[in-house]
Simulated scan of single mutants.
Amino acid sequence: MENRTARLTLLIDPKKKQIFEEICAQQDLTSSQVVRRLIHQYIIEHAGSRELPEWLSAPTARIDHPLK
């Protein structure tokens, strides 16, 4: 799995951010966990013929916390 992290800064409407964080909290997830999961899914769905590392292309039984 990854062994380093990088920062990603997003600009988002404050009202959307508040709603997003409330929904994440209701699911006992952090906003970072959800964004990482979304990015992971996006990469898998749009990688095309790009070769991905095994840890990224393997089925994800658990990434931080399963999403419903």
Rank of each mutant, 00 (worst) to 15 (best):
E54V: 15
E45C: 07
R4M: 13
R37A: 11
A6I: 15
Y42M: 11
E51I: 15
Y42V: 11
F20R: 09
I63K: 08
R4W: 09
I19S: 09
F20W: 13
T60S: 02
R62H: 07
E22S: 11
K17N: 03
L10R: 05
Q26H: 02
E45Y: 02
L29Y: 00
N3Y: 14
Q27N: 11
M1H: 09
H46E: 05
R62T: 12
I23N: 04
R62Y: 06
R50P: 08
P14K: 03
L29A: 07
H46D: 05
A47E: 06
P53Q: 02
I44P: 00
A61C: 10
T5F: 09
V34Q: 04
T60R: 05
Q33H: 06
L29P: 02
P53N: 01
I63Q: 07
L29F: 01
T60Y: 01
L11W: 00
F20Y: 05
R50V: 14
L8N: 01
K16A: 11
K16S: 10
H46S: 07
E45N: 11
H46P: 09
H65W: 06
V35H: 00
L38F: 07
L67H: 05
T9Y: 04
D28S: 13
S31P: 00
E54N: 14
L29N: 03
R36D: 01
H40P: 00
R50D: 06
E51H: 05
T5V: 15
T5D: 02
A58V: 15
H65K: 11
R37H: 07
E22C: 11
I44C: 04
E21G: 03
K15N: 02
A58C: 12
R7V: 13
E21H: 09
L29E: 01
L38C: 14
Q41T: 10
